[in-house]
Structure formats: C-alpha cells, structure tokens
Nucleic acid binder design. Sequence first.
DNA 1: TTTTAAAGTGTTATCGGTAACAGAAATCGA
DNA 2: TCGATTTCTGTTACCGATAACACTTTAAAA
Lengths: 321, 321
Amino acid sequence: MVTLNDVAKKANVSKMTVSRVINHPEQVTDELKQLVYEAMQELNYRPNIAAKALANNRTQIIKLLILEEMDTTEPYYMFLLTGIANELDKYAYSLQLLTHKNVQIGDSDGYIVCGMRDEHKELVESLKKPTVVYGQNDIGYDFVDSNNQKSMEQATKFAIQDGYDKIVYIGIDVDQPFAHAREKGYAQVMDAHGLEKNVYRLENRSRYSAAFIRENLDRFPKNTLFLCASDRLGLGVIREIREMGFDIPNDYGVIGHDGVFLDQIAYPHLTTLKQSTAEMGAACARMVLNKVKENGKSQGNKLFETELKLGGTTRNQPEVK
Amino acid sequence: MVTLNDVAKKANVSKMTVSRVINHPEQVTDELKQLVYEAMQELNYRPNIAAKALANNRTQIIKLLILEEMDTTEPYYMFLLTGIANELDKYAYSLQLLTHKNVQIGDSDGYIVCGMRDEHKELVESLKKPTVVYGQNDIGYDFVDSNNQKSMEQATKFAIQDGYDKIVYIGIDVDQPFAHAREKGYAQVMDAHGLEKNVYRLENRSRYSAAFIRENLDRFPKNTLFLCASDRLGLGVIREIREMGFDIPNDYGVIGHDGVFLDQIAYPHLTTLKQSTAEMGAACARMVLNKVKENGKSQGNKLFETELKLGGTTRNQPEVK
DNA sequence: TTTTAAAGTGTTATCGGTAACAGAAATCGA
DNA sequence: TCGATTTCTGTTACCGATAACACTTTAAAA
C-alpha cells in the first residue's frame, strides 16, 4: 500500500509537506506542489481513511436515520440514499444506515434524519453531532426538501391551464409541514383565480383514495381534475375512475406528486411533480459535511424545485398564448 | 472519549490486557476478564473504529455495487440494504454504496455485488477483495438468493390445488440463472402433473404484460391462472384482465413473484411469493465478513425459501384433504 | 544595512488500537 | 528440588495520517 511516506520520498520532501499539499495546498510553493502531485500520480496514492480519521479525531462516518416504516413508504429512499452515498464518497465518508428498529446511535461525525415526526423530537435532540433533516420542519433543524408549496402552485396552475373546470385537492392527512405546504400551494392559486377550493385529506394509501372516489365521484362533474398530494393517492384515484368506466384524461384528470417509480407503474402514466431525490440526497450530504467542518454551525435550509412530468392522466394541451 | 487506556487504568491492568479481553478472551484469566468487563461497563467504553482499522490494516468498510438501473428495478433494494447495513453494524462495519454510474472502486475490505450480468464479469473479476454476489450465478461466485426453482414449484402446485385448469407462465425474457430457475420450477411441477406447459417471455415491465393480455387473452379459456415471474408483470396482467371486463380471481387467477411493495400496490392485492429480502441482505453481509476473516475462503451459496403470500388474485381455497 | 515579520518546510508527538516480543509466575517432569 | 515448559501479563514499536512547534529562508520595514 502506498503511504504518505512513499510519496514524500519519491518527491524528496517530508511527509508533512505531502499532507499539506492535500489539506492546505496554499501553504506550499507551486514548485513543491507540482513535485508532490506528480509523485502521487505515479504511485497512485490513495489516502488511508482510517489513519486520517484517527488523526483528526473523526470517524469519517455519517449516519442516516430512517424513522418511518419503509413498507409503506414510496421507494424514493433508494434514490435519496444513492445521492447521499455518492456525495459522501467524494470526501471519503461512509454511510451507516439506521432504521427505527435499530437505533444504535454509535459513533459518527454527523447525522441525516429522514421521516422525522414530532414523536422523534427527543431522539433527534439527543444526537450530539451535526444533524441535517431531510424534510421540511418548523422546529429549527437545518433541512433539505422540495419546495412543496411552489410545487403545488405549479400543478394547480397547470391544471387550470389544461382546461379542467374544477380542481379537487386530495391531501395526506398528517399534521406535517410538507402536507400543509402542498395544500397551501393549491389554496393560493385557487384563490388567485377566484376558484372554489375543495380539499379532502386521506391516509396515504391507494386503497383509501380509491374508496374515496368510489363513494364520491358522483359529486364531481366531468372535467374535474384531482390534484393528489402523492402518487400513491393518485394511483388509487386513477384505478377507481377507470373502474367506474370513465375516461382519463378526458372525463377526469389526475396529477400526483413525487415522481418516483409509482408514476411509471400507473396506467396511464401519471402526470406528477417529480422531485430531484438524488440531488436532495447529495445536498443533505454536503450540508452535513459542511456542518461538520464548521463545528455544527447552522447551514440554513435548501429547497428544491420540482419538475412537472407529463403523463397520460392530463390532457397536456399546448399553452395558450 | 473513553479509550482502551482509560479502561486499563480503571481495571489496573495494561491496555494490552484490555485489548485481549476484547479480541482473544481465552488468553486472559477469568479474574482479570471480570475486572475489565466491569471497567468497560462503568466507563461505557466504545472502541474507536478508526484506530482498530488502522492497526489491523483494515478499512472496516464493505462496498455494495449495484450494477443495474434502479429506475426500472423493483424497490426491494431498500430492504436488502437495510438488511446488509444492520448486520454490518454489529461488527462495526460501514457500508459504501456504488452504482453503475459511480464505480470508484476505492478501498474496502470486501464487496457485495447486485444485479450482476455477464457484461460485468470483468469488473467483478477485477475486485481484489472478498466478494459475495446477491443473485444466483453459475460462474462460481459465492452467492445468496431465493430458491427460485422451489419457489415456482410451490406456486405452481398452489395454482393447481386452487382449482385453475390451465396455468400459463409469463417469464422474464433475460438469459439469467434466476429466470431459468423460476421457469424450471414451473415446468417441473407441470410435467409431474401431466399438464400442458405454456411459457411466454416478456421484458419485465407491466405495460408489456398488459399488452400481452390485450392481444392474447382470447386464446386462454376462463379459469386460467397466469403465473408471473415478477410482481411487475403480474401488475400488468391484472390491470388488463380487469380492463377487459373479467373478474379476478374467478375468471382468471394471477400469481406474482417477489412480494416487495408492488404486490401491495396492486388491486386486488397480488398473490405472490415473498422473498426474505432483508434476511438475504444480512446473509450477504455475514458471508462477506466471514470471507474477510478467512482470507477470502469460499463460503459457498445460500438459498432462501420464499413464502406464499395470499392476495386477492387467487381463490385461496382451503386445501383438499 | 539591520531588524523584524512572514512564508515555507521539517521534526516530534500523538490519535487509539494491535502484533510481536519479553519477562514473570505457575505448572510440570525427573 | 531445580530447570524446562507453559501460561499469563506487560513493554515496545508500529499502523498512516495530522497538529503544534521549531527552524530556515525570504521579503518587508525601518
């Protein structure tokens, strides 16, 4: 294995100089830097992470806490995870996965927390290391999330422009900031257009949204669009509308939210608001690493825009000029 | 932070003794062991992984290579991953995730490889550390997988017993051992019962199986069961049969395979063969760690049984005595 | 030109463990 | 009983990096 020492010898400098070239290059003359770079290249030097960690009193580990049940969760975690993992990789950091079933808070340099609810506040508070939350929250943790409100504003505007007379919002019945933000986005645009709001809130499962449609569709005239707070809800809505013999997108329109996997499972493919899940994962990683570097200094929040991904559940009419 | 030294002082022994209590307890008298255990307990000693790794010339890292596209893959990876991660955790190992887009083979003590196809043979061969493959293969790598053949045997037997006259197999059209094994399971039981085999192979996407049904359902009499090599294929079959106005499970039956997430998305819930994904992940982890410990010695293969999970796409008649 | 500060490089000690060897105590055989 | 093993514990060196300090050399200030 090639060590700092080997590089140092090859470049005729001390290993401290090599270490500086890596960590504080501004302290070394260009001439030596050049020599060292060449030596590193030739020897294909790879730093020993364990040694680095030990010397720095770090672990080079970030723990990811997933606090919600994954059975019932859309599969976007996988994308989040690869986003995080790829980013951490760049800085020689490893990821450790903890689920709510296995919260062995061992050693790490920082935490990323997902699926946080009020009941987890105490747990998260007990974390002694820099922490970033994936998911909007209003209790002061640094977070990364989609811009949920803007996302639904965009969807609502699109629905109006796409020619639907009535737009019904099917939200997720949880008292969480993300759910409120999405609903607010809908409300705002409806108000701005002087349209009547219709809000229903269901548990986030397709069978509930299907049941809702079965029992209530007669209350909604044709040319209504159902704006769903998740693709999962959207899935149930589509299924039942078709089951009842109506046409999508002509009789009824449906828009979902998330754009991870489920929208493609739907038939027809669901028009949805696609989140940049992997990028958000990367952002979480960067944020927590910065926080580690800056001794836990708050990094604020970061919101990502969603992308309207057209499927076959809306008409997708050309925009009126 | 509590170190070996702190424990040693508290117990009035040298730190080497403490190290031995942890790694080679048989070399230490019971008396001292007791003292050391108590000291560790009182101080809540946690070993420093980086130091351990450095001293042992290890990284305490296992890399997970996911070689297939995740967009098109069932979301079971998340379960596999938590299985692996939880197991590694027990041995103070971290996980690093590599995707086919990001194959920076850095340092690690071993590898777990998923989604391996023939084209990856060279890559996998180039890995210099103990490797375990998730997924049956016939080119000699240690692997963990479901018992695919037995799984389909079980499904076929169930289908017969459940009263369906004709059983059609819809396989995945890839030249992979798992696909062949599943098909073989079907074939074996059909032959044993003297029934006519019907095998079709499609790309693993619901829209293809739906299209297949649309174009061919008239060739299959009522009381046929479609045995699908994946839940994804099953999903398309259900959708289209219902679309065409037939009843499931009375007119037609459907059985899927995998039992991860998609079966629950289906309506009605899909009868499927549920894999023990998390357990298989844990098995991969254990296997690779053993292999590391034993300097790469082959660990053989490990097959997991699947569980028949009844949904609403079969009649689920009580077994005839 | 001399003094002083700044910049660049090397030396030493250290992070928290472990292997290899050394030494002390206990057990054994003749 | 005494040396020879065997068993147990401690000492030392080292894994590969970095921070803190020491030492030159160079540039800036007086």
